[in-house]
């Protein structure tokens, strides 16, 4: 995709993931490609069922039966994570160099162990630290995510903490092994708005201080606007537009991106009525032929019933739309 020979930190190439269900084959990811550079934050935006989570679950090896990775490749620092020959490399990378933060911290924190036990366990296992070293580092980590009185917190169980505090603990655990890449899957969706604001500030601050790369999965364009350098918009298992966040928000090209930005309510602009996108997202068992947004698109043409690949618009911006591509490519 890019002309530069530089190897990105993480690259997904034509990732195809299918889920074999009794209702039919759910084509959750239909050829998704994206890359993340060192120190960059990539936002993947999409609605439920757009395949945004599936794409990163494939990176983390979290696709289980009935799901199956059918094709494409995922390269971390240029080496494949899907190649069965490189199992040892994959084990080293997942969990250590790539860490993940989930939407609901309760699913990844074990309720029967204290926070301290869980963080030090990670440190001793992955980093080979002694008990004392690990304890010391765990306190440092909690401090880093702005949890006060870390000594006391280490002795607490997950259920003794609030949702926001648990999410901070999750972030601390993700940072424990000094990862190069953090994947955050809807990290603030389950939180209250004022707590979400705190966590977003924290993530932005940590990203800058530690210079890690971040992939942020979200359905909220506002969150992307606050945190991300680049943004990829997904619809029905494909990336429809990708580019620099400022540019995409300032001049969205794909009709779906345009619609999504208009539909997101803004507190700084007054409109009489909320803007919606008519229709419903397509069923991924039998997605429409050609452009999946075609049935809901107000600029649809005849050409749209054929498939359109991502077309480069310059400035490392890509869009997959017949109308937009023709206007801009010239």
């Amino acid at each position: 995709m890019t002309a530069s020979p530089k190897i990105p930190l993480l690259e997904a190439r034509d990732l195809v993931v299918n889920f074999y269900t009794r209702g039919g084959v759910v084509q959750a990811s239909r050829g998704v490609s994206f890359q993340v550079d060192y120190g960059q934050t990539l936002g993947i935006v999409g609605e439920s069922g757009s395949g945004k989570s599936v794409a990163v679950q494939a990176v983390m090896g979290l696709i289980f039966t009935p799901g199956h990775i059918e094709g494409g490749d995922i390269l971390f620092k240029g080496r494949s994570l899907l190649d069965p020959a490189g199992r040892k490399f994959v084990r080293q990378v997942r969990g250590k160099e790539i860490a993940m933060i989930f939407q609901d911290p309760m699913t990844s924190l074990n309720p029967v162990f204290t926070i301290g036990t869980q963080i030090t366990e990670v440190l001793r296992h992955h980093m080979g630290m002694t008990k004392d070293q690990a304890r010391h580092r765990a306190m440092g980590l909690l401090d880093m995510v702005d949890i006060n009185a870390p000594e006391k917190r280490l002795k607490q169980y997950p259920h003794e903490m609030s949702g926001g505090m648990r999410q901070r603990v999750m972030i601390a655990m993700a940072l424990a092994c000094e990862p190069r890449l953090i994947i955050a899957d809807e990290p603030t969706t389950a939180l209250d708005v004022t707590i979400q604001a705190q966590i977003l500030e924290l993530l932005a601050d940590l990203q800058q201080r530690l210079n890690v790369s971040v992939i942020l999965i979200t359905h909220d364009l506002g969150v992307v606007a606050q945190l991300c350098h680049r943004v990829a918009v997904m619809y029905a298992g494909r990336i429809v537009e990708v580019g620099d966040a400022d540019q995409v928000f300032a001049a969205p090209v794909h009709p779906y991106t345009q619609g999504l930005i208009r539909a997101t309510p803004r507190l700084d602009v007054v409109t009489e009525r909320m803007v919606s996108i008519d229709g419903v997202p397509p069923d991924l068992i039998s997605p429409p032929k050609g452009c999946a947004f075609f049935p809901r698109c107000d600029q649809a043409k005849k050409a749209c019933s054929r498939m359109q690949a991502l077309v480069e618009l310059g400035d490392d911006r890509h869009v997959s739309c017949w109308c937009a591509a023709k206007e801009n490519v010239r």
Binding site: N18, Y20, T21, V25, P66, M307
Partner: peptide
Amino acid sequence: EREKQYARHMAGVMRKNLLAALEKEKP
């Protein structure tokens, strides 16, 4: 569990059908 069971037995057939369908569709 039912879905998993189904996928284990049917994935092969379904994959073949899907690929054939996609092949036809490709411009």
